[in-house]
C-alpha cells in the first residue's frame, strides 16, 4: 500500500483523502474513442459471421472494455489499491460462485 505513504504529508487535505493523479480530459476522450471502436467491432459480429470465433472474440472484447472503464474511468488505476481490492473481491466471488452454480446445471457442457 505504498500509495498511502506517499501522501502522508497531505494529512490536512480535505477529508484527509489523498488526491490521486487524474489525467486530463483529452486522455479520457482518447480512451472513449477506443471504447467506441471496440463497441463497433463487437456490433460488427452481427453482420460478419465469425463462426466459432465469435464467442471468444466477443468475450475478450467485453473484458477489455470492462477493465478499461473500471481502471480508467473509475480511476482504479490511479486510486488507492484498497478500492481495487474491495471491488475485485466482489467481482471474483461473483464469477466464482455463479460459474460453479451454472456448471452444476451442465451449462458449460452444452
Amino acid at each position: 500500500m505504498n500509495t498511502v505513504d506517499e501522501h502522508t504529508e497531505h494529512g490536512h487535505h480535505a477529508h484527509g483523502a489523498e488526491e490521486p493523479h487524474i489525467p486530463k480530459d483529452s486522455y479520457f476522450i482518447k480512451v472513449a474513442l477506443w471504447l467506441a471502436l471496440l463497441t463497433a467491432l463487437e456490433t460488427s459480429t452481427y453482420w460478419i459471421h465469425l463462426g466459432g470465433f465469435a464467442t471468444p472474440a466477443l468475450l475478450i472484447m467485453m473484458t477489455i472494455k470492462f477493465f478499461m472503464i473500471i481502471m480508467i474511468f473509475m480511476h482504479l488505476k490511479f486510486d488507492n489499491k484498497l478500492f481495487s481490492l474491495m471491488f475485485y473481491i466482489g467481482l471474483g466471488l461473483a464469477i466464482f460462485v455463479y460459474c460453479v452454480a451454472l456448471s452444476t446445471f451442465q451449462f458449460f457442457a452444452s
Binding site: 466471488l93 466464482f96 460462485v97 460453479v100 456448471s103 452444476t104
Partner: peptide, 18 residues
C-alpha cells in the same frame, strides 16, 4: 465458506463430481 454451499443439496441429485 463461499465454496461449500452445495453440501446443503447433496440429496438433490447434483451429480457425482459436484
Amino acid at each position: 465458506g463461499w465454496g461449500v454451499w452445495a453440501h446443503h443439496m447433496f440429496a438433490s441429485g447434483l451429480g457425482p463430481v459436484s
